[in-house]
Design a binder for these strands. Sequence first.
DNA 1: CGGGTCATTGAGTCAGCTCAAGGCTCGTGG
DNA 2: CCACGAGCCTTGAGCTGACTCAATGACCCG
Lengths: 245, 245
Amino acid sequence: MVIPTSQCHSMPQINCSSCRLNMLCLPISLELTDINKLDEIIQRGRPIQRGDHVYHAGDKFRSVYAVRSGAIKTVSNTQDGQEQITGFYLPGEIIGMDGLATNTHSNSAIALETSAVCEIPFGRLEELSAQLPNLQRRFFQLMSKEITNDQQLITLLSKNNADQRIASLLLSISARNHSRGLSAEEFYLPMSRSDIGNYLGLTIETVSRVLSRLHKQKIITLDKKHVLINDMTALRNLALTSDKP
Amino acid sequence: MVIPTSQCHSMPQINCSSCRLNMLCLPISLELTDINKLDEIIQRGRPIQRGDHVYHAGDKFRSVYAVRSGAIKTVSNTQDGQEQITGFYLPGEIIGMDGLATNTHSNSAIALETSAVCEIPFGRLEELSAQLPNLQRRFFQLMSKEITNDQQLITLLSKNNADQRIASLLLSISARNHSRGLSAEEFYLPMSRSDIGNYLGLTIETVSRVLSRLHKQKIITLDKKHVLINDMTALRNLALTSDKP
DNA sequence: CGGGTCATTGAGTCAGCTCAAGGCTCGTGG
DNA sequence: CCACGAGCCTTGAGCTGACTCAATGACCCG
């Protein structure tokens, strides 16, 4: 019933070369000796609790962070005091790249559940990047991935209705879990309904109604935050703009 | 009446150190000798006409491009055949960074009017970046800026109504014109109503109605694509979420 | 002058919002 | 052990801002 979550936030002594996420994370395409060089600059902190900040909007930019376990949301504050969740980040994904442009974080990063992150001091990463072309390329790629992700969200918000938005989010989490070796069909949503609504530009009531409807239609089975995708094909079709066939 | 546009697309022989955009573009924070090194790798093409592509979605990623004159839109195609405009780019701004993640452009870049771009082969830029820390930093910053821009658009689409979206777009173009030494109050919109609607997640009718209303309220004076901002303060207030004061 | 593209304006519809009520769960304290 | 309050979620009912559909106008180019 309960899907066991990774225990690695209790093992701060782990290093990149033995981390089971290293095929997703920053070290991709690095040689072992280069991974070890990267390892030396990475600082592994103690677990952070639900609601704790990894960094605050306005903080001086010093580091980027790899999520090692748990789940993190990034939140940007608009000038008029609203909060917009700009992303949910799962193990192996990198946060903090928003801080480079102005040397100050424009977002806050907040743990959705007990989590652990690897801190990567950016100054050291820059130096190492200049020496290791593969690392430089890899980091450019990660930033580019961030851009294309954001653009997909823009499209979702601009063109898609509530059903499509929710279906797309479920499919995204499913696919990312799958790439980490977990089930694509069964998982826990680490965020609240309110977080989902904020992220997708919907009210909490609409999120709740859509999820209830998907459950009634037997496309998913939903119990609180536990999701079981019964009909992946139907969910994928729902995520597409169902105009002309 | 007619605001003269830059003529530099007819002067391909110009180089970075003499380009009047060099305080906005890639060369910021480079020494003169380093600018000259950058200059050597940049290829300046002939003018491109309205509707022409700088690159197509699916093209192999080879270069990024600095807009030298005119205006460019970037368009991403969703799997189900829809088009989403993800940005409008004015002189001094960089396009093409979407291609890094997968080595293939995920967007198309299309000229909104007669334009010129500087092509910057990415392989050469990477090599040079490894040698020039300031250039590496500058390029990271540009990508980070792209991310924060996209996140602002996400917030706009997620939280703001039609009036706020239109007002924000007008203010953004105004500010970017101003930073290029042009008028903040008076400018031409390089894109169609349909492009505006696509970008902002609105129908063309709504765009037209909102612009007409702003004109009737004397906040702007609108004649086709020519915009005169009469009351910058009112426009700024409109762009803010006008909930609790 | 005709045909095409782009923009404006009006009228009616509807998806998602607001407002409101109530349920479930968990922790705290009597 | 149960009562109670605080969060979080669900569900219903009615409203509204933006959409759809439709007609018309303005401009450009051959």
